[in-house]
């Protein structure tokens, strides 16, 4: 058997790379979340220009999952434009509130909100949006398990995101995770916040689970708190209130700030 010349091998590799568009995310731009554990698990931060899934398993956690998606959009988009697609029905049920977005750090001034009537329209619009490299991040919000959203649809979104560099966040509420082409998949639930003075509810806190990650560790859980000013996720440990919330091991004192 003769050895193929190096140039042939290289061209074959290039061809394979072209065929396999969804290569492991090495050498992609990442944005650090500020949380040491999460950044280590993600290999330095959240990959830009990829498809990420955010799940709220029940509708009760809609607020938490929407908030987490808004936060991811805020720090992946920086000052770029963000497009948020949600179904008309979802918007009629609970409006996305501009002041609330602003208080999470996502400026509504650079947000375009699209409210298509049906999931199919929404996914078609999403395909168009994600292909447009003028926008920085896109949030695609879907309630329940619409039929048009299958593995093929998610693969299309993932490929479009990769070629255009638009960070795409697929926000699924009241839906069970299903196979997809996403880079990461998060399950988000509300977590008790660190109380402020006079036992007032504190900064947004989340119970995060990194359920899946392409080419990286998965199945990790954290409790984090989002700080709008510093724009980082910080470790949040819940104070002892009921048995539902486990205590984090090393609670940084600064988090009480």
């Amino acid at each position: 058997m003769t050895h193929a010349p190096a140039s042939t091998l290289a061209s074959l590799r290039r061809r394979i790379a072209r065929l396999e568009r969804l290569r492991p995310a090495t050498g992609v731009a990442r944005v650090a979340t500020g949380h040491a554990g999460i950044d280590a698990a993600l290999g330095g931060g959240l990959a830009l220009g990829r498809l990420h899934e955010v799940f709220a398993v029940t509708a009760d956690d809609a607020g938490a999952a929407t908030g987490f998606a808004a936060i991811l959009a805020a720090f992946t988009a920086r000052d770029g434009p963000v497009i948020w697609l949600r179904e008309g029905r979802a918007q009629a049920r609970a409006r996305l509130h501009g002041p609330g977005l602003a208080e999470l750090g996502l400026d509504p001034g650079r947000l375009v909100l699209a409210v298509p009537a049906a999931p199919l329209d929404l996914l078609r619009a999403a395909a168009d949006v994600v292909r447009c490299d003028a926008i920085a991040a896109a949030v695609i919000e879907l309630w329940g398990e619409p039929r048009p959203l299958d593995l093929t649809a998610s693969r299309r979104l993932a490929m479009a995101a990769e070629s255009s560099g638009v960070t795409t966040l697929l926000l699924r509420i009241a839906a069970a995770p299903a196979p997809s082409a996403a880079q990461t998949r998060w399950r988000v639930a509300a977590a008790p916040s660190l109380p402020l003075a006079a036992n007032a509810p504190g900064h947004p806190a989340f119970d995060l689970e990194l359920m899946r990650q392409r080419g990286g560790p998965e199945g990790l859980r954290w409790q984090v708190e989002w700080n709008r000013e510093t724009r980082i996720l910080a470790d949040a440990a819940a104070p002892l209130l009921g048995a539902v919330v486990p205590l984090a091991e090393h609670r940084p004192v600064a988090a009480w700030g």
């Binding site: 607020g63 908030g67 409006r95 509130h97 609330g100 602003a102 208080e103 999470l104 947004p204 000013e229």
Partner: peptide, 19 residues
Amino acid sequence: AWPAPPPGEPPLRPLHLFD
């Protein structure tokens, strides 16, 4: 750009508003 919310405060307005 929208006016910046007061620093140091947690969100005082909700993300989802029922109407």
